[in-house]
Every structure is written in structure tokens, then in C-alpha cells.
Design a binder for these strands. Structure first.
Lengths: 197, 197, 197, 197
DNA sequence: CATGAATGAGAATTCATTCAT
DNA sequence: CATGAATGAATTCTCATTCAT
């Protein structure tokens, strides 16, 4: 009876369009009109599904993080149990994201990071995402580190790598050649391994 | 056209206000009205000294970079001739910038990085700044590396550290406790040293 | 076209919800979405029962007037045949409406009065309602006045009391303590009696 | 030097236009575009002088009240010292306002009364205005009443007349013939005098 | 140079109403 | 009848920029 709800799908379509537009023109440039056009829907429909631009951004952040996380989880699954390999797999997965494969996501993520500066709500979820990344790294580092490595040191290493990944993203967003994929991956591996000693 | 005003000082005052406001509210939030109020001048006056908001941003980027560069140059000067020490001094200087000492500059810099995504003119000078940083690091790495280290490897190391610094800035801008100064500095040193082996 | 629905009850439910929402947030604030939510029905259903928001308002005006009229008619019935008592019963009944008993109706009525300013269709039925009230008062005044009181004078008295009641409603809608029920009733009685002399 | 400020005058012009448009089309109908057109200025200029529509409304309320107050104060000044005459002068002045002389103000005032239902900020200043009117009447009643009249009774009388005036405004706003000026004035006088006995 | 009023091109948002299911 | 997604016109508000004084 009645019209079947396609809300979830529509929300995803809209968020996907938003991410693409934002990657191309920044958050301010991602006007509702531009997003609507990209999605091929009237502007009002966006407001039928989202409370506003901020709500759309917040929802997109979740989507972006999920996409990033899924990506490296897939890789981790393919990796064996060797702790060091697992740690490197994590790093590889993230740094490789700067590749064309998902450039839009990475660039959009950089925009989120900048909005986090100005908008408390965005900052909250952005920082949470960073912490989740660091926590994941902490476990990987803990498993890969020498037996008596202090918890503090593990935490620091995890934080540093988490931050470095963010830097790779930023650089990749503005200059693909700066840290060409192959190079960046290799070097990030070296940095990570360096922290294990 | 921005006049070759006798009041270069005014331009600096305005740019300084712009940076502060941008650090607090982002680029979009740094309205001309807000900047003018912060500087304690009428809004129209900004347009006597700058061609527009973009011009103001471009000028501020130069100012920010100069400020950052001056800071670590001072440190480098205090450092001896040992190549490794010099390299670490460079890293220390940058990472320490996330401290309260110049938080506003760092946060504003992050905003510049996001604007670079959307605005070609900004991207150009932002990328140039990143390259200058990498080039500086390249020389430092070259001097500190083992004799036969390949040029490519030195370049990659420099790029990775340059990017990591950007990541530290981003994280520091939204979460001062994430990479508390002391920790971040120490870990960045370890990462850098790791790349030398 | 509003269907001659078998669910006249639905229309009433919707109108009741509309009145409540309008009393709380004004006519503009009584959005179809808010009314639907209040009524616990989907938004589209309102349009099955009413031609539009204006139609809903018009129907609600009738409902409000009926509610008000019923109230004082009940009182009049309980009152004997003494003309003065009947006149005072009418006044009491209206002024007492400002009490919590039916505050929402009174407040909604005030909103109707304001919409009558801008919307001709509303003005028409609102003015008609005011005239019916005045006409009712005219008869009561005629019966209660001294034998040779002129028709003009009776009409004027009726109009003044009718208007004063509207004023009591307005005041009650925004400030329940202004004309606390007991006081207002007593004073309106005095005013009415004063007009009889 | 520089451009002389005409802010105060502009604000008044805008508020005057707003009142006129609101009297014609209600608060919701008084769009910024309509007000701007009426004032013969671009829409943006309104926002240069007022924080928003609500701010414009608030400012207009002050203006309306001042206009009303000035009007009867002028009359009071022309009236001698006889307390009853002064009281009646006050009543006359208000009721006569429904005349064409200042119909727009009265109608706009009715719109304010309706907005007071929905908007707390408006309610606050509207209620304050009503209280000032009542307080003024209280003093006049106190002076005109029989020596031992209780304070409570004086207050009640003042409140009732204050409310009745609001009702006259409402009625005048939608139906000029309902309480034609002459009649309304005469009857309100009788009502007021009735309260003195 | 200085001032701040003026301008107008968008931007987000609201919401009554329509319509496919 | 019922449902709620879809539509798009209208509205408020923002803000860089211009310009008269």
C-alpha cells in the first residue's frame, strides 16, 4: 500500500553527489543547487531528506569514514596474521587511497577536516574518526612492537602515523604528483617500520 | 588594484586580523565585516588595500609561510653543523608550531589547505609552499643520509616528512590533545630518524 | 475538492489539530506538516479532506465560532428570563472563555482575527461572526434596556461590548494574568451594566 | 569627512514602509521584497539596517506605540485638569485612532498582537505596551474615581478599558463600519463613565 | 586615504501542494 | 482513501564589492 520508501537509497545518492561536488569545489562551493543538479533531482528534495547542509555534511562524513574503513578492512582480511604485515597493510591501504581510485573521497575528507576547524559538530565527529583510526593503529602497533614497548610509546606511534596519513591525504588532494602513490606508500612503510625499532 | 600604499603596515594589520578570524571561523566565516571589526577599521578600507577577499587570502598565505619559515630558520641558526641535528631541528620547529605559541597560524594554514582544493590560485601558491618545504627537507636529508643514498629515496623521504608535518598541523588544529606537543615532537623525530636508516 | 467524505470525523480531527497548533505557533507556524504530526496522520491526507490551508482555516473558523457559541448558549439556557441576567450571562460566558478551559480556542480565534486583516475570504467570515455576536447582543440589550432606548443606542452598545470581548480575547491570548478571569468578568459586567443606564 | 550617516532616518523609512505593507497584507505577507519595493530601496539595504525581519518588527512595535502615545498625549495636553475629562480624552484619543487618520498603524498593531501569540520576543514588548497603557489608565481612573474606590477596583477598570481599546482596534482593522468612529467613541465614553460609578 | 551606506547576486531554507504507488 | 516522496516557487538572509561623500 502507498508509496514504498526509498529514503535510505535517496539519502545515499544525495550524499554521494555531495561528496563529489565538495571534492571538486570545496564545502562552500558545494551549493545545494549544485548537489541537486549533480544528483539529477530538484533542490527541495534534498531538504526533504536532510535537515540542512550541515546535516548533509555530517551524514557524508559517516559515509566517507565507512568507505575508507571498508577499504582497508578488505585488505586486512587478505593479510595473514603476521603483526608487522598487518600494520603495513593498514598503512598501505590508507596511503593508496590517495590514488585515483577514490580521489574524490580523499579530497572531500580534506574539506571535512577544514570544516572541523569552524564547526563544532563537524569537529566532534571528525576527531572521533581520527581517534578511531589511531586506536586501530594502536592495536596494530601493540601487536607488532617489541615485547616490552611501553603503552605510551605505542600510543604515540599510532598518533603519529594517524596524523601522517591525514597529511598524505591533504597533499594528495592538491597535488597528485607530490607524493605519487608508489613513492608515498613505500616511504610511509619505511616511516612506520622505523617507529617499530 | 591594491595601491602601493605607504601603509604597508595597514596591509599587515589586516592580513593578521584575517588570519586570526580565519583560524577561528574558517575561510567562509572570515567575512570582510568580521575581519574589519577585528582590525578595528571600517569595512571599506580593506578594499583600499586589497583587491578582494582572494587577494587578501593570497597575501595572508605568504605571510603565514614566512612566519613558519622564519621560525624554523631561527632554530636552524642556533643549531650546529651536524646534519642529523639540523634535520631534526627542522622537524622540531615545525611540529612545535602546533603549540599554543602560534596555534592561530597553524589553524589558518589548514584553512588555506582546504581552499587550495577549490581555488586554483590558492592551490598554486599552497603547492609551491609545500614544495619549498620538501626541497628544504631534501637538502637536509641529503646531508644527513648515508653516502650512497639515492636521490629518489631522499626525495621520497623529504616528501613524506613534509606531508606528515601537514597532517600534524591538521590534527593540531582540531584537537590539541591528540598529538600533544611533547609527544608529537618526539615521535616525529623517531619517524624521521627511521627514514635515515 | 474536499470530498463529501464518509469521514467527517477526520475533518474534525484535523481541524482540531490545526486549531491547537495555530494557538501555539500562529497561523504561519501551523504548517501542514505540524498539523499532520499533531493529528498523527501523514501530511498528504490533509489534502484529501481539505482543499488547502485556507480551506482548513475557513473550516476551523466555523468550528471555533460554533464552539464559542455553544458555550454561551448552554449558559443562557441555564439562565432565567430576566433580560439583564441574560445579557450578563452572555458577557460572562464569553469573558470566561479566556480561562484555561478553552484557551487554545481563544488564542486561535485571535490568529483568525489577524488573518482577516490580510485575507479577504477570512475577513468575510470573521466579520460575519462578529456581526452575529453583535446581533445577539443587540437583542439582549434591547430586552434589557429602558423602554424608550433608541435602536441606534442599542446597536452601539452591542457593538461596543462585542468589540470589548474581542479585546479580552486578545489580551488573554498573550497575558493570562493581565485580565485574570475573575476580575475581567466582574469588570465586564460593570461595563455592560453601565451601558444600560 | 566620509559619508554622513543617515542610518536613523533610513531605519525610520524602512519601518514606516514595513508598517504600511503589514497593514495591507499581514506580517507574513510583508515580505522583505515588498517592504523594499515600498521603500524604493534594494532589499539588501534593509538587512544593512536591521538584523532581520523580527528585528524590523520589534523596531516597528516601538514606533507604533510611540505614535499612538504621542497622539493621545497631544490630546491630553489640550485637556484641562478635570480628572474625568482627562480620562475621557485618553479614551477618545485611542478609539479615534481607528479613523482613517491612522488606520494603517492600527491595523499593523493588530498584526503585532497576533505575532505576539507565536513569538516570545514580540509578546514581551507587546505585553509591556499593554501594561503601560493600563498603568496610564490606572492613574487616570484613580484621579477620576470616587474617593474611597479600592485600588483593586481601579486596576480592574483600567485593565478592562485597556483591553476594550484593543478590541476596538481589532474590529476597526477588519470592518471600518462596524464601530464607526463617532459611535465607537461615544459608546466607549459611556462604558468608561459606567465604570466610575 | 577614509568612511560606511548602498547594491545585487546568490545561498539556504521553507512549505503548500501534487502525484505516483 | 492512504501514504509519503517529489516538486518548485517564494522567502529570508548573507556578503563581497562598489561608490558617493
Amino acid at each position: 500500500m502507498a508509496r514504498p520508501s526509498n529514503t535510505a537509497q535517496r539519502r545515499d545518492e544525495i550524499a554521494a553527489s555531495f561528496i563529489e561536488v565538495m571534492a571538486a569545489t570545496g564545502y562552500a562551493g558545494a551549493t545545494m543547487a549544485a548537489v541537486a543538479e549533480r544528483a539529477g533531482i530538484p533542490q527541495g528534495l534534498i531538504h526533504h531528506h536532510f535537515d540542512g547542509k550541515l546535516d548533509l555534511l555530517m551524514h557524508s562524513v559517516g559515509r566517507l569514514e565507512r568507505r575508507l574503513v571498508e577499504r582497508y578492512e578488505t585488505r586486512l582480511r587478505r593479510t595473514g596474521t603476521d603483526p608487522v604485515r598487518r600494520l603495513l597493510a593498514f598503512v598501505d591501504a590508507h596511503v593508496a587511497l590517495g590514488a585515483d581510485a577514490d580521489r574524490a573521497s580523499v579530497t572531500a575528507w580534506v574539506c571535512v577536516g577544514a570544516e572541523a576547524v569552524a564547526e563544532p559538530a563537524v569537529r566532534r565527529i571528525y576527531v572521533q574518526a581520527l581517534r578511531r583510526r589511531r586506536d586501530e593503529l594502536r592495536e596494530l602497533f601493540a601487536a607488532a612492537s617489541a615485547p616490552r614497548t611501553s603503552r605510551a610509546r605505542v600510543l604515540e606511534s599510532a598518533g603519529a602515523v594517524a596524523a601522517a596519513i591525514e597529511g598524505i591525504f591533504q597533499v594528495a588532494a592538491v597535488d597528485p604528483t607530490f607524493a605519487a602513490r608508489g613513492h608515498a606508500v613505500r616511504t610511509m612503510r619505511r616511516m612506520t617500520l622505523g617507529l617499530l625499532r
